[in-house]
Design a protein around this nucleic acid. Structure first.
Lengths: 109, 109
DNA sequence: TTTATTCATCGTAATATTGCAATGAAACAA
DNA sequence: TTGTTTCATTGCAATATTACGATGAATAAA
């Protein structure tokens, strides 16, 4: 099938999964880390830094944009991409809340 | 292709992506949340709680086990699953380090 | 206008993921 | 032994993802 049954899960569970899915590819992790380092960035730069073909980078950027984590601004022939700080903070809150659940004192197995 | 070019990324980037990939399905998020709530759990329970067929749950549990986040212990005919607290803490450290990068003061776009 | 540059989109091939019915394997109960 | 229960595995169909060549659109430069 390849199709997740999202309707049987809570909105929160689906949201966590959607965020995680975007982080589930090393290229997108690398793009985000580069954007954090640079403050500002263009796609051509990323093609050199990451080492994937330009259409592939463009596709990964699209998914990051779709989730709202990055913003793109056209500047002449190039496009400037950067982290959407507000969206990143919101996302971080959701993910840390999930990661930070109370661990049981004793393990059963 | 459907095949990530892991060799061009750092070990850290691949590790973050591998972790995130496992969280990238709501069923696995739901399973983990249930294990946190229960302290102890068996798969049959999960099939009822989650609402997917038994083989599907079993497959998701396998991926969680493969990443090391949960442990399974055979108890008679049933299997007891629970969070591996040490592995969870390690994983949490890696993910929070990634999520907690310093945001730029000013956005360029 | 013509050409170059930069990035997005389209189309497609290769592979991965999701879900489940059918079936196995292991432990227990009768 | 013969069921019964519980979970894992196999096999398969439907869909998703990844990667990139080819091409398109927009702007800038000559």
């Amino acid at each position: 099938m390849g199709l997740a049954k999202t309707e049987i899960f809570t909105e929160q569970q689906n949201e966590i999964a959607l965020i995680a899915k975007v982080f589930g590819h090393p290229a997108r992790v690398a793009i985000l880390q580069h954007l954090f380092k640079q403050d500002s960035c263009v796609c051509g730069d990323l093609v050199n830094v990451i080492g994937l073909a330009q259409p592939t980078i463009s596709q990964h950027l699209k998914e990051l944009k779709l989730l709202g984590l990055i913003k793109g601004n056209v500047e002449g022939t190039s496009v400037c991409y950067c982290i959407d700080t507000e969206a990143w903070t919101d996302m971080k809150g959701i993910m840390i809340k999930f990661l930070d659940q109370d661990l049981p004192d004793t393990e059963c197995c």
